[in-house]
Design a protein around this nucleic acid. Structure first.
Lengths: 230, 230, 230, 230
DNA sequence: GATGAATGAGGATTCATTCAT
DNA sequence: TATGAATGAATCCTCATTCAT
């Protein structure tokens, strides 16, 4: 996508009639990054709904028109921001959010996943704004939904190694619950600092582990749900 | 603008049906109810941020000027709405959200509380909008915080009978977690219908029960935390 | 519409829930007239497309918001302007644009109609902007089409007494031609002054009369088309 | 900005294929043709006023900067477009729009001229946009006026063979009328299709012929004005 | 020449809030 | 009280034009 930028050479200057993705200059790429960074700041500060495109442009130190050279509207910014965030997340932690070694105890796997996610969120506070549904139903829907879908599929991936026998519908529901629980916990984590924050991180892990543990049934490395022992 | 904000919502609360029986009060009360109902509709439909005072007035069938005769600004409407909602909740279910009989098993108590809450939410869809803070920090903060504080104290009340030995800080943290979990679950419940909705209700109960169970330690009527069984 | 304004009395203040056409105050009626006058000026000066709502508001001496209290958008202004213009035209000259006495010679009838129309246009220069199709297809369509339809039906009314035997489709086509010829002539008339303008008025009458004369076939008071005499 | 406006369009006209055979000229000519074609498309689609230079550049497959390398502003494009159109018209039908044989009956001459004009318009739909002045006085004025002047002089040429005795002022006025009538008719013609379109073409011819016939007085090949028959 | 980036004033429209009646 | 009118800054977005590369 950005690797073959140089290939666009002289001889196609004539036959380039209307094909859309026009050449992008390095400066433009920089501007886009700048704008996304500014958008992240503004979204984080004021929330998506109240974030104005002019405010984003101002924060980025460019004119409103410049913003619209790269993004057709506010939602497109959110979408691209979400995409890049997911991309980075994938690059950092791979496809599965956690080691897929089936012998890893649930506790450890969830703990690691939560730690990573929390760290990622602290590094990228926008993620939180983007993850939270929009105040207004229908707005920001696309950006939010795309993010959600990606996150859900990753969580399903993580869960499937612990719940190999779950029906797809159940797996999906469990993933939704986990994401919901995580979002709720994250909100609390971000709302506190220091030791209290750490305490909330522990509670979040506990909530997830306890919720999942009974579902993880008979699995190698699983000590067994309470009461299922002979 | 901000000077008489608490005056109003506080006044309203205090002078209800006291003082001389003025005939304008009856009309005023009706207007307020009308406006709050309209606000509930509009908040639910469009969210707090996007709800315009003009839209609320229109929905209530009055002029914008009339609205501002009863509420100094948009947030005051949300605050009063939250107050009334909490009032009604209190009237319906008493102070404790659930029977305080200490012998009630946790499972039953949580299940009942969740059922009641869900029912209440379905009856008053605004509740959800008000509970979910707006995506904009600072806006609607007062309304949201007041609601939260009340809910938290009620949850603490419920929890304290199950966690009698918990330190206040821990109790508070646990209440925060429970509220967060509940909000997360509620979002999922409201996003689905029919059997799937019921399934999410069950999952929500499970999540809460499993989260709380180990904390409920040695309590009469408690089967014991995992690992404490003989 | 404005006669029963007073009827709206106390006792319906309660039952007025959502019915739309709200009471309009005298001040508002004045503002509307003011705004339409300003719009007429601006449309005439700059044309519909380039006329900005802000410019109209400025010309009317009010804020942009005030304009939008009375008109939902720019086109609505054009539509209302057109409606009022047609209303006035009808009030001034009745439904038929010209005396329907079938014995009136074509020449006289057309001459009178043109004179009236020209006079009306000179008094209301916006009429010209409104009548001319928009530069941009699709924009201003409603206002323009409404005006056109009304004008056409009036022209058909006038023509039908001279062309009693014409098929509807032919009558319609002839009316279209007359309107087109009139618009073309009007443009030239308005572009000149003094004697030259008068000359163009004469030419316009000639063009219309000569175009229509052969169509008016055997009619009482008609001298007969060239060459049809025995 | 306005200083070098006529420089450009005049330069363009003057240096066509003169001077040294530079290779860049070929490319430039191609670019200009490309841009004018794109402009024609956009003008036709959206009208002159709403046509954006960016849209024209996009349609032409070049960057906005390139457009401004060949045209100093939007109006210059319209002017050049009009010039080329007139040039082509002249090349196709010669200087006089119609055979100057004085014996040709008026009916035939007008019919032929209209047919040719209509055909030309159908081939070059922009012509219509350019001929109809924009609804905004002052904008596009130069392009529009240049076109008009050329057309008028050609129509005068055609008329002079039928109205040899007319005073210059009368001839000019008649030409204006003919052009106006033609534009009005053309609008109707283009607004219809199939048989209805043909019917309008006939009506347009009729209108012109009947308008001109009495003016063509005693001319060889003229059957005589009404009432001059024996 | 050619490109894409940059501009910034201006467009339509909205909205919380205040005011005159 | 109640109303509808009034405000004006702010919103998103566009566009003719210029600039750096």
């Amino acid at each position: 996508m950005s690797a073959n930028r140089e290939q666009v050479s002289q001889d196609d200057r004539d036959r380039q009639e209307k094909e859309q993705p026009r050449r992008r200059q390095a400066r433009g790429e920089r501007r886009i990054a700048q704008l996304l960074e500014a958008a992240a700041t503004v979204f984080t500060t004021t929330g998506y709904t109240a974030a104005s495109t002019n405010a984003i442009a101002r924060e980025a130190g460019v004119s409103p028109g410049t913003l619209y050279q790269f993004f057709p509207n506010k939602e497109a910014i959110a979408i691209e921001l979400g995409d890049r965030l997911m991309h980075e997340l994938r690059e950092m932690y791979g496809e599965a959010l956690a080691p897929v070694d089936p012998m890893t105890p649930l506790e450890e796997a969830v703990g690691a996943a939560v730690d990573r996610f929390i760290a990622f969120n602290c590094e990228h506070p926008v993620f939180f704004s983007l993850m939270h549904g929009p105040d207004i139903p229908g707005r920001m829907a696309e950006a939010h939904d795309a993010l959600h879908a990606t996150l859900l599929s990753r969580i399903e991936g993580l869960l499937s190694s612990f719940l190999p026998d779950a029906a797809p519908a159940d797996l999906n529901r469990t993933a939704h619950m986990c994401l919901g629980l995580y979002k709720a916990g994250l909100e609390l984590v971000l709302a506190h600092e220091g030791a209290e924050r750490d305490a909330y991180v522990e509670e979040l892990k506990n909530a997830l582990i306890r919720y999942l543990d009974p579902l993880a049934g008979d699995r190698p490395g699983h000590p067994g749900a309470p009461g299922t022992a002979p």
